[in-house]
Design a protein around this nucleic acid. Sequence first.
DNA 1: TTTGGGCAAGTTGTATGCAATCTTGATGGG
DNA 2: CCCATCAAGATTGCATACAACTTGCCCAAA
Lengths: 238, 238
Amino acid sequence: MTLFEKPVPQSDSVIEDRAMAIRESLRNAIIDRRLAPGTKLSEAEVGSLFDVSRTVARAALQMLTFEGLVKTERNRGAFVSNPSPEEARQIFASRRLIEPGIVAAAVERITPEDISRFREQLREEERYMTERGPAARRAEIKASGDFHLMLASVAGNAILQRFMDELVARSSLVIALYGRSGISSCGHSEHFAILDLIESGDAKRASDLMLHHIDHIEADLDLEPREGRGLRDALLSS
Amino acid sequence: MTLFEKPVPQSDSVIEDRAMAIRESLRNAIIDRRLAPGTKLSEAEVGSLFDVSRTVARAALQMLTFEGLVKTERNRGAFVSNPSPEEARQIFASRRLIEPGIVAAAVERITPEDISRFREQLREEERYMTERGPAARRAEIKASGDFHLMLASVAGNAILQRFMDELVARSSLVIALYGRSGISSCGHSEHFAILDLIESGDAKRASDLMLHHIDHIEADLDLEPREGRGLRDALLSS
DNA sequence: TTTGGGCAAGTTGTATGCAATCTTGATGGG
DNA sequence: CCCATCAAGATTGCATACAACTTGCCCAAA
């Protein structure tokens, strides 16, 4: 009757269905490394854990499979993805290709309000950096990824944003897997510098710095060939 | 007992499950425009059409939703995607970002055998160009997309390859929707020129030409604002 | 005639049951 | 002692049943 009959579509991605919520929850658990790579994600277990049927759990796992965060083998089930060094390299190669363009687009579209939010986000990052312990380190990885995601959202291209969603999530998993201990601190100051260059409107230098930033992240990884891995990494990793 | 006990894992992506086959079939139908944008894809109808249960049909539709080829609305169902001009622009912006890098990678990795296969593919394209009629035009769009996909596969980055899969599929839909009649012929000669530059190892010029090529494809589209569309394009389009 | 409400048909969301496949542990033969 | 075969348990793949929601129609009332 009234014009506001519907209770407002809300943020659209928040409502969705239950499968999406489970996907988010598992996704966070995976990139936080609370779920170790290779962990079996049985439909029944996920279902009972979230109090839904296997149907819904299965849908969530299917979504995560599309994102590359879990790998499913026919008639065997779903496992937390255990990205190989080669996969890791491809992930960062993809980011090197995409993110400079995102920075350039962000330079064109960013607003002063956006800049404020970014600085807030960077302060948040800073807090985790001062702390020690694995929990803080996980939070730092996540916050660091959020910077890149915010940049992608400012760039105003929904498709690239979705690609970045996937790439950042998989990067977080890779960093948790192959990252050396404490060197990622340099990355944070680069976030500040990138933001400054974006604010000043210098697209070229901002893009270049983003490129270097990604190089630095990848350089801090320990991506040796790791002989003997490639057979069935999930089984042999334990 | 014998070393060949298992009947060979086969091409891996060919086997998969039935949902994948349905996805492929629907995907081809959509980018061929045999399924018009806005067409309702009811789970029951898809299921009975392919002689599977709604469960499998639903999985296929979910995959297509991830690819952006269909749009699903909660409790309302799945519809063939009807990309807006803005979406189309984002698709091509994404391609402009990614494909030059793919060309550069392909220059490094392409083999003489690959080049032969490419020339074969281009000859195929040529055949469809001489013919008239909507069927030949659809085949031409598809063959033209295949060139870009083959390039992505040569580049050797599985992630970028998957991104390109999605972008090319959505581009085909956009071209079918917004393409002007016969101007796409210039694109074909550019494919030849790009391949020549790749063969000669000139990454820079090959990438630049790819960039221009994408510009030309987009320039051949009719992407006016189309007032009055943005409300609920699926409903109002008919 | 127009508007509003309510019922009915159809579709999607979810749960569950059954068959097929894989894993695992046991058992028997070499 | 080792290896192969096989049976039991468990898990996935798929189909189907039911519940919840949306939509469109019809009819009544203004």
